[in-house]
Structures are given as C-alpha cells and as structure tokens.
C-alpha cells in the first residue's frame, strides 16, 4: 500500500492541482462528446428514414412492429406524425396522408401497447389521455374539445369506424356509465360483461362472493367468470394477500394509473 497518497501539505497542493486539471479536462470532454453526439443523432435519423421507407409494408401491416418502430422514434425524439407536410413525417415516409387514418394507427398502437396491462380493453378516457400524450398535447381530462389540436372522443369514434372495414375488431363497449374500447377479436361473454360492470361500480377490486351476490349467481359461476378473465383474457390480476378474501381480483381496465 506504499502507493497510497500521503496526508502532508504536498498532498494538499496536489489535490488542488488535481481539481483544476479535472475541471479543464471535463470541459473539453463535454464539448467533444456533444459534437460527437450531434453527428451520431443526425446519422441515426437518416438511418431511421431509410429503415422506414424500406420497411414501409411491415410497418403498415404489423401493429406490434409498428408499436416498436414508433417507440424507437419517440426515444430519439422523432414524432412520426409531426413534420412540415400535412400528415407529417410519417405520411411522407409511409404514404399515409389521411389524418383520420393516422389517428387510427395511433389508436392501434396505444391499444396494442397497453394490451398486456389491460387485457385488450381500455377506458375511453385513458385512451384519450394516452393519445394526446403521444401527440405531445397537454390537456385536462374532459377538456379535449376545448383544447386546440387535442384528440376528442368524437375523433376516436370516427377513427374506429374507419378501422372497421380492416376487420381489426375494434369496438366501443358500454360498461355501466363508461365507454371502453375493445381491441381483442373475441366475443365478450355476458358473464364477463357483468363482472366488468360490478367491478366498475366498486372501484376495480372484486372477489367471488361479492360478484355472486351482486349478480345473483351461485359462487361457482362467479369463480369461473373471474378465473376466465384472469387466465384466458389477462384482463385482471389476482392478489392473495388481501384480508377480504383469499383470492381478490383487480380488473385492470377499471383502474387509472398515474
């Protein structure tokens, strides 16, 4: 350990000198790395454009691929829908000019991107919030129609109609007082709809006995409906540490996330 620094006056002076030379050095390093970063970003943007035009078909066809592509764009600060042209950079690259259709693409992206979390059923308000966030528009909940440039519920309803001929299976479902957008091609069975309605009225947390009583079902039927939602649809999460019941189910689409 003879190499360790001493503690005398010389060491103190050396320490001061160290600090100074670090400062000079760090300044020049920062400048260098900033320059290098800018060149890299430019290069990356160009590569991304080339990638977008050569994979145009895949991006249009495959929603998962598109979601990933979009995420890539966002992470380097390129908004595929923004740009000088009407319809933006995306339109230029992919030849999709129609605003309505683009909104459709974003709806698909949000629905696919949140599917693991909500089982393919998203609350309209949450969808609007995410769409406007995606577009970088700050908007208060429920104030969409009075905010310039914000996507409104009517826009979403129209876009979903536009998507219908594509057979994507997007549909608006009314659960109690709420509108949900369903993006899974699957019949929502009646029992499941009932469970959603009950969950909605109690704030998202349900268990078999509670559902059975509210729906007037035998407990077994409630268990079956809940287990279907848990295991088949992935539309709820189970909790085994709740004091109210040994198995408590949280219906994802009824919850709001900060």
């Amino acid at each position: 350990m003879a190499l360790r620094r001493g503690a005398g006056l010389a060491a103190f002076e050396r320490h001061k000198a160290d600090i100074q030379s670090y400062a000079t050095l760090s300044e020049s390093l920062t400048r260098q790395s900033l320059d290098a970063l800018e060149v890299q970003l430019d290069h990356f943007r160009m590569t991304l454009q080339r990638f977008a035009s050569s994979h145009r078909e895949d991006i249009k066809k495959d929603p998962e691929f598109r979601a990933q592509f979009q995420q890539m764009c966002i992470s380097i600060g390129v908004d595929p829908l923004a740009g000088p042209q009407k319809g933006g950079w995306w339109a230029e690259m992919l030849g999709m000019g129609d605003w309505q259709y683009e909104l459709g693409v974003q709806i698909v992206d949000v629905c696919v991107g949140t599917r693991d979390k909500n089982g393919g059923m998203i609350d309209m308000r949450e969808l609007l919030r995410l769409l406007n966030k995606l577009r970088g528009i700050a908007v208060l909940e429920g104030k969409e129609s009075s905010t310039p440039g914000a996507v409104t519920e009517e826009d979403v309803l129209r876009s979903i109609k536009t998507l219908k001929p594509l057979g994507a299976g997007y549909e608006i479902i009314h659960i109690g007082s709420r509108k949900m957008v369903r993006s899974i091609v699957k019949e929502l069975d009646m029992d499941q709809a009932k469970v959603l309605e009950i969950a909605e009225s109690v704030g998202g947390k349900v268990w078999a006995e509670l559902v059975a009583e509210a729906a007037g079902w035998p407990v077994d039927r409630a268990v079956a409906a809940l287990e279907n939602m848990l295991l088949r649809d992935g539309s709820c999460w189970i909790d085994d540490q709740d004091p109210e019941a040994s198995a408590v189910y949280w219906v994802i689409s009824v919850l709001e996330w900060e």
């Binding site: 693991d116 848990l230 295991l231 992935g234 999460w237 189970i238 909790d239 085994d240 540490q241 709740d242 408590v248 949280w250 919850l255 996330w257 900060e258």
Partner: peptide
C-alpha cells in the same frame, strides 16, 4: 404507480401477465 397496486406483490398465474 404499479408499486401501489396490491397484486403487484403476488406473482401472476397468467403467462403474459407474469412477463
């Protein structure tokens, strides 16, 4: 916010949810 979600502390049986 997921940390305030009680089922986050219970490993989920559905494969996709678990991932």
């Amino acid at each position: 916010s997921i940390h305030a979600f009680p089922p986050f502390f219970c490993f989920q049986p559905a494969a996709k949810t678990r991932v």
